[in-house]
Amino acid sequence: MDLVFGWRSATLLTAAAVLVPLAFALLVTLRNRLANRTLALLILVLIGVFTPWLIGFAGFYDRWRWLTFLPVAVPLLVPAVLRFYVTALTTGALPPRWRWMLLPGLVEFAFQAVSFCLPLAAKDRWATAALPIAGPLFAFALVASFGWHVTASLRLLRRYRLSLNNAISDEGRFAARWLATALVTFAFLWSVWGVVLLWDWLWPLGYTGLMWLYLLIAAVALFLAIEGWRHATDPFPTLAMLEAAGQPTKAARDWSTQGRLWADQVAEAGWVRDPDLDITGLARRLGTNSGYLSRALNEGLGVNFSTFVNDLRCRFVVEAMEAGSSQDVLALALDAGFASKASFNRAFRAATGMTPSAYRARVSKAEKVRPSSATRRHTDRPPPTSGA
């Protein structure tokens, strides 16, 4: 029987041709090395998941029947390796008991490998007897595994982002948003995958009917590989380092008064204009330690480090606008210490309740604008509670 590469096989083959070089590029990237290697492994596992459909629609199984049970598709490895990637990026290490997390995938691989080695006649009989039982069991295990690992990864990411906000002024520069997007994408894939598997169990969809699921898996793999490679060298401070830097001390002080004093000192000195400012560097300039500064901000002023710094930066932009500066809004933002337009827009809206362009338009109409509480709070009174 001749091999036929129709649109289904061609689409999946094209995806694999893009994914393999990206996986190799991640393997040789030195920064975030452990995380990038786990991402490369995840990409290869996803390629394996849709490979049976790639070769099946091309006629491989019809031409070479001994390929039945070819042990390349191991979906149960996907959730665990995804969690490895998130954990490696945020902590610099694999999760505790990571070997046990691989066990379901290894069991699935062993089932396929042993079945693949059977003689052809025995393999046909085994497929008829075993697949109706093993298929639903592996499908249920996959759905449960996805739920467990995605939930644990989201919990870890939330902890990481809170620690970033307590120690770093611009979370966007540390690609935490990329991780959140990746996890939301996999949560969507998990829901679709689970529904399709349940549907196929109750009302079999057939080989062609399941094709759309594997096209979605290939699309998610491409998104993950391309975006993961784009963020492969982004800085990712470890969770332990962030929590140590933002850990408040237990010394008894009037943190509200101390926070206002330091806020005034920081505003006057203009230190927040440094886009690389973090809590350790600011504490050093204030002549204190990061623990004291963290407590003054969290308990004394009711804000985290990111909100404190970005509100002061917004204050500088507002003052420049009200002074009649003709500079572009983005130029004002960069001069105030913001590293990107996106982070500036988010912070400005949170601080003033308006977009930068709307605020400038309001100023240009010569209306009498009272500074918002967000732009006055570091000189008049403590800031409102926000992400402490």
Rank of each mutant, 00 (worst) to 15 (best):
L282W: 05
L102G: 07
T307N: 04
F308K: 00
A263T: 05
Q247G: 11
K368V: 15
P384W: 09
G147W: 04
Y85N: 04
A15N: 01
S290V: 09
L70V: 15
V78C: 03
G209Y: 08
E299G: 07
A251C: 05
A15E: 00
G6K: 11
N345C: 09
A263H: 02
T68Y: 08
R273G: 06
T355E: 11
Q265H: 14
F69R: 02
R376L: 13
W178P: 01
N165G: 07
N345R: 12
S191T: 15
A339Q: 09
A110Q: 00
W100K: 14
G147M: 08
R37K: 13
L13C: 15
F50H: 03
G246H: 02
I133N: 09
V18F: 12
L242H: 04
F223Q: 14
A122D: 13
W203P: 02
R37G: 10
L137D: 06
L332V: 10
V266F: 08
L162T: 10
F305N: 00
I133V: 11
A336E: 11
P235D: 11
F146V: 07
K368G: 07
H231E: 15
R349P: 03
A269W: 09
A269L: 06
S364D: 11
M1K: 07
W64A: 13
G56I: 01
A113I: 08
L215A: 14
L94N: 06
A342S: 12
V309Y: 03
L30P: 01
S153Q: 05
T90Y: 08
A167H: 03
L120P: 12
R362H: 09
V329N: 05
M101C: 08
A121N: 14
L154Q: 06
V329E: 01
F84M: 10
A182P: 02
W201M: 10
